[in-house]
Design a protein around this nucleic acid. Structure first.
Lengths: 335, 335
DNA sequence: CTGAAAGCGCTAACAT
DNA sequence: ATGTTAGCGCTTTCAG
């Protein structure tokens, strides 16, 4: 009852006393620094474990003058970010760094998320699909090594790690062209990260096929509901495209369901290609043809860039990862 | 080039010097403590802003002997958690506390997530739908005020904030009963948080309707793919239920698409009820009848319990929030 | 309002 | 191999 909560605070001092050694020795042991015999290490570790001691990260950080923290922002409602985050945890393992995560959501904007990371003195930042203006990201990059993932921008201040979205969009478009489609629409992401590149790839492929006049952009977005909008905006008549490339999988799924609901068969009436290859894309009932982003590799590269290499300066760089077309059952020749 | 990164470190000292005041004064200003005139405050804030000073959270925490941090774990791939998290950010606003978030994913388990929160000396923990065994949560609750959200357990060591899932399941079941259904199946969540209560509510309502012999549990889960499994396990014959209650919306969506894919109409052939009312449930193409969990209220209660009130001890308590049945278009009378 | 001083739980040189 | 001693950037108390 009279238990002192909060004051769990088992300190290094306590461990040292209990183990009958100096505090410095305990420190050495917990830092894996040289200067202690194996028996001593073992003994101290044992005592610490018994006491339930856990080093205080903040104190350690203060003393060490570095945090070994990589700050990460991600969209709380974006499954693709969830998957990237998962991969990030994996990528950071064994590096000595820890992820400090801050969610971006309706009530917690990107700036708030980033501020929090800065207040905690993260050594570098990894921003998943940030929506902030380039100027702001530039300013940020001038203060702290920043890696922007899944978005392209013109900046020499921040590093970038992204899929070659132009290529990805080309792969999607060319796949449809090869199937024989000519009326191919793009559900456009507007100003969303990656959208400009995907537009470009789409346009390039269409033009290369002599279909420059058939470019067909329709407003889309990154959520299912945006896909619905896309689908509903399409007339059922002769002008309806025979194939649609969605901004991402979520959008594609929205399109698909809306189409099917209005009696349009996928892929019989309309072929559909997504982007990302999130988990939901491979569901049997979805089985979406899509452009896969390699989350493992993206995460790995992001972590590499986030951790300042001892030799090379903190120069900002760009990593481009190859996309891969995953063929499933939402694409077929036009009828 | 020779730019000293990392050593941004504008300290209180710097601000004090630049503003021509003592460091203590700067501290007072940034703590909003009494002892400084309004002009001085203004002046110091201005100088600090110009210098781009941001107080160091860790140092502040160390000195203050408290972190004012609420640790939160959430499932990186669970949209419902994403929505709860969003609500948490809102709920914590103005309390002086900050959220310290740790994702739970395949490669980053619950234990790792919690350990990290403890290492950072979060004052209390809010666990969204934790899967850890009760004993472990109990042990945790003995060390740090812990709030378990969206899961019921027998424990006097941790607080609980959850929707009345038994009631929620009853509402779903009774809605179907009223429509005239008798062959109602439950896509069961097994050991998932909340699953036992939902089973119970379902059973109670069925038994109250004299359908105790018609109980029909089929293995489900929390992801779309689990819903698919549920759908595929159901024979198309006469024994097929006329209505299904899913463990959650994601599962319901999986069921719905799988059913439609195999030519079963929803709600004409089979009625469907979800749980949570995540964003996707209200899409036109989904338009899922579901049991809504009040994320705002859950988050608010969780934060209240997480912040130790000055008067009441850190006694563990339970908050139960009412569910609400949201009628949409996936339920209809049996034919 | 200032300035000095102790302390938070660690790290990391430097002694022994 | 082990102990001593300054810090790290801040809070907080206390005497001016």
């Amino acid at each position: 009852m009279g238990r002192d909560r909060d004051v769990d605070a088992i300190t290094m001092e306590d461990v040292a006393r209990e183990a009958g050694v100096s505090r410095a020795l305990v420190s050495i042991v917990f830092r894996d620094a040289p200067g202690a015999s194996d028996v001593t290490r073992d003994h101290i570790r044992r005592v610490a474990a018994r006491l339930g001691y856990r080093p205080d990260r903040r104190a350690r950080q203060l003393g060490r003058k570095r945090t070994q923290l990589i700050g990460v922002t991600f969209g709380a409602l974006q499954p693709f970010h969830g998957e990237l985050l998962d991969a990030m945890y994996q990528a950071v393992e064994g590096t000595g760094y820890e992820l400090h995560v801050s969610a971006v959501s309706q009530r917690h904007g990107e700036r708030a998320a980033i501020d929090s990371l800065m207040d905690h003195r993260c050594e570098s930042l990894v921003l998943l699909g940030p929506r902030l203006p380039t100027a702001e990201l530039d300013a940020l990059g001038a203060n702290v090594p920043t890696v922007v993932v899944a978005r392209q921008l013109r900046s020499s201040a921040v590093s970038q790690v992204r899929t070659d979205d132009t290529l990805g969009a080309r792969m999607a478009t060319e796949h449809l062209l090869e199937l024989g489609h000519t009326a191919i629409a793009l559900s456009d992401g507007g100003a969303l990260p990656g959208a400009a590149q995907r537009r470009r790839g789409y346009r390039e492929s269409m033009e290369a096929a002599g279909l420059g006049a058939r470019l067909h952009l329709v407003p889309g977005g990154q959520r299912e509901v945006d896909g619905e909008r896309t689908a509903l905006s399409q007339a059922k008549g002769a002008r309806r495209p025979s194939a649609v490339i969605a901004f991402n999988d979520l959008c594609a799924i929205g399109i698909m369901h809306a189409l099917r609901l209005q009696g349009t068969a996928v892929p019989d009436d309309v072929s559909l290609v997504g982007y990302d290859d999130i988990g939901a894309a491979s569901l049997r009932a979805v089985d979406l043809t899509t452009v896969r982003q390699d989350t493992e590799l993206l995460a790995q590269r992001a972590v590499q860039r986030a951790i300042p290499a001892p030799d090379r300066g903190a120069a900002a760089g760009v990593d481009i990862v190859a996309p891969r077309l995953v063929l499933r059952s939402t694409t077929a020749p036009p009828r």
